[in-house]
Design a protein around this nucleic acid. Structure first.
Lengths: 120, 120
DNA sequence: AAGGTATTTAACCATCCGGTTGAATATGAG
DNA sequence: CTCATATTCAACCGGATGGTTAAATACCTT
């Protein structure tokens, strides 16, 4: 159902542990075991979290002996930012227009009725 | 489990229908019935979606006769943008530093061995 | 070949989530 | 009061999700 990229990214970041992992990876690459260490959950659970982040394109892996370090892919953030900014801007523009309209109405003499369709 | 605001917001936007509703609300307020019209799902399902958006602070309601128009609250986007931008910046900075380091190494004379412990 | 470390897979479980139908509530119109 | 409209609440269902334990895989070391 949620196979589009944006859904995967938002969904991945909806979990606090996963956001935490992203925050940790922003300071440098790390292995599953290193990432799992601070948490109480098993390393398998963290492995699953990383799978989710990977499927969302937020994390990539490499190989280095037995280890498989995780690397944060920052570009994916753009996708979110673009979406967010678009609708925020629209909503704020609309708000600004409404605000201007109200100011305009406010400027009129209050003796007149509220201008309910002043036909013609 | 996920009662923090950021989780609620990301989780709310992880659903395509809900993102669609947000997009729709960015162009103007609308009632549940109006919002439900374009979709195949029942109006109850849309009502639930709106509840989720409301709990995340993305949408507010008012009353107007029987209707309860939905209004998009754009400020909440800031929370996400801040979080996203923070880690993107960190990751990009790190990338830039690594890039610079590689360039620096690249500038060295290639006649020398790759500087990996010149043992034996 | 044998053993240790890092990681994933498999099977399972409880809970959450998005959807349904059906009944309840709230408000306005006759 | 009664009816119609708008919305929510309640109970239920199937599939996803986050967690577990136990076993398998991958790679290095000896």
């Amino acid at each position: 159902m949620t196979d589009d990229r944006l859904s995967l990214v938002f969904s991945a970041l909806a979990d606090p542990t996963r956001r935490d992992i992203v925050a940790r990876l922003a300071t440098g690459d790390a292995t599953v075991n290193e990432l799992a260490e601070p948490y109480e959950v098993t390393v398998q659970a963290v492995s699953k979290h990383i799978k989710v982040l990977q499927d969302a394109g937020l994390v990539s892996r490499s190989r280095e002996a037995q280890r498989r370090p995780c690397h944060l892919e920052a570009e994916v953030f753009d996708l979110m930012t673009k979406w967010i900014e678009r609708y925020r801007r629209e909503a704020e523009d609309r708000f600004r227009r409404l605000d201007a309209l109200l100011e305009q109405l406010d400027a009129r003499p209050t003796t007149e009725p509220p201008a309910k369709e002043a036909a013609s």
